[in-house]
Amino acid sequence: MSDSSHKSKTAKKIIAGLFVACALGTLLDLLFLSDSFDKHAAFEWENWPGFYAVYGFVACVLLVLVSKYILRPLVMRDEDYYE
C-alpha cells in the first residue's frame, strides 16, 4: 500500500489540502459557532466546540482498530474456505 501514488505530487497536495481544510474547519467551528451562534442543537454535546471533529476522528480510528485487531482475527479465513 505504501507506494508511488502516496508519494506522488498530487497525493501530497491532496493530503496537504485535507490538513488545511481540517484546520480551517476547526477554526471556523471555534470562532463562529461555539457561543454566540444558535446551533439549534438537540443535544447539549452538539454545542461543545469541535464535537463533530473529535467524534468523526475517534469513531474512525476505533472502527479501524476494532476491525483490524478484534474482528479480523475472529472471522478471517482462506479464500477457498467454503469450497
Binding site: 502516496h6 485535507l18 474547519g25 467551528d29 439549534h40 463533530y52 471533529a53 468523526g56 476522528f57 480510528v61
Partner: peptide, 23 residues
C-alpha cells in the same frame, strides 16, 4: 449553517483519520 458545518467537520476528520492511519 450548523448542520453543514457539523457534517463537514465529521467527514473531514473521518478522512483525516483514514489518511493518518494509512500513512
Amino acid at each position: 449553517l450548523a448542520h453543514v458545518m457539523g457534517q463537514s467537520l465529521l467527514l473531514l476528520f473521518s478522512a483525516l483519520a483514514f489518511t493518518l492511519l494509512l500513512l
